[in-house]
Simulated scan of single mutants.
Amino acid sequence: MSPTLLTAWKSAQARLKDGRIDSPSIDARLLLEAATGATRTDILTDPYRAVTPDQQTALDGYVERRLKREPVSRILGKKGFWKIHLNVTPDVLSPRPDTEALLDVILLAFPPHKAFEMIDLGTGSGAILLATLAERIGARGLGTDISSEALAVARENAANLDLDSRATFLRTEWAAGIADHSFDLVASNPPYIPSDDIDGLDPEVRDHDPRLALDGGPDGLQAYRDLAPEVRRILRPGGVFAVEIGWDQGAAVKALFEAEGFEDVKVVKDLADRDRVVTNGPDPRVHALPVAEGAQ
């Protein structure tokens, strides 16, 4: 009997589960969609659609790669982030849901239709910059990166999202060559893994993300030491910065930015209740708290 969308999905899911792959159901569905051209809706509404031999061969190949711990984003060459889809290559960090905590801060700090200029330092695929521009039509931005290959990916993503008229890119180290007081928002997801910890990361990260985007030096904090004075220099008075951090780096990174003269610096948690962002902007969780009864 020929496989169907449903049986192919279940079979791929079982293989991934036996291989101790996280999220086997989601990964199997994404790989099935790519192999067959089906959508999630197709799988639900037309589950008995036949899968051709060529499609099954493609799916089997994808599953074999996933069992070797190659991330789905690397297999497919694309990854969803916030509300956009991005092309990803071995030259850029694969965007992660953790980084969306930056967007929670940014979008609260800059309401809809507000015009502002931002810079994304170490832009990689352009994820932070492009997700922000997609949400804020009055915004314009610059993404910097030391990797020309990464910038090529970011430019392609901007064009694919029709954001290239508002997004520009520059090859430079962090903010080198950027004029003082140029931006209302400075955002960054710098490398923050201590050098000696990289070999112990999951294979999906260790073997497939560029080391340049992971290695934060001996203690994981070198990028923040470099960034804090530069952020202070290029940020306009009253501007907002937001940087992603490792779960155990909140106090140390907060202190580095306070040492540069920033006030009201706070550590913001992600949806998993882990420290994830250091910023002088609003804390989404505090902002979302209901007003106490009788409060004015």
Rank of each mutant, 00 (worst) to 15 (best):
M1P: 07
L5K: 00
L6A: 13
A14G: 08
G19W: 15
E33Q: 12
A34F: 00
T45F: 00
Y48C: 09
Y48F: 13
A50R: 15
A50F: 12
T52M: 10
P53E: 11
T57F: 10
L59W: 11
L59I: 09
D60L: 10
Y62W: 15
Y62V: 11
V63H: 11
V63Y: 10
R66C: 14
R66E: 15
L67P: 06
K68A: 15
R69Q: 11
P71Q: 13
P71Y: 09
K79P: 08
W82D: 05
H85M: 07
N87S: 11
V88L: 03
L93E: 09
S94Q: 04
T99F: 10
E100L: 08
L102Y: 03
L102Q: 04
L102F: 05
L103Y: 04
L108G: 03
A109F: 02
P112G: 03
A115S: 14
F116G: 01
L121T: 01
G122N: 12
T123H: 08
G124E: 04
S125N: 06
A131F: 13
E135H: 10
E135D: 13
A139G: 14
R140M: 04
G143H: 06
D145P: 13
N160W: 03
L161F: 05
S165V: 09
F169N: 07
F169S: 08
W174H: 07
A187H: 04
P190E: 08
P191T: 09
P194A: 12
S195E: 08
D199I: 13
D199N: 13
D202V: 09
P210Q: 14
L212H: 03
L221C: 04
D226Q: 07
P229H: 07
E230S: 14
E230V: 08
P237I: 03
A242D: 14
V243I: 15
V243A: 05
G246C: 14
W247D: 13
D248C: 07
D248V: 11
A252Y: 00
V265Y: 06
K266F: 04
K269L: 10
K269G: 05
L271S: 11
D273A: 10
D273S: 13
R274I: 13
A288F: 00
P290N: 10
A292R: 11
G294M: 03
A295S: 08
Q296I: 14
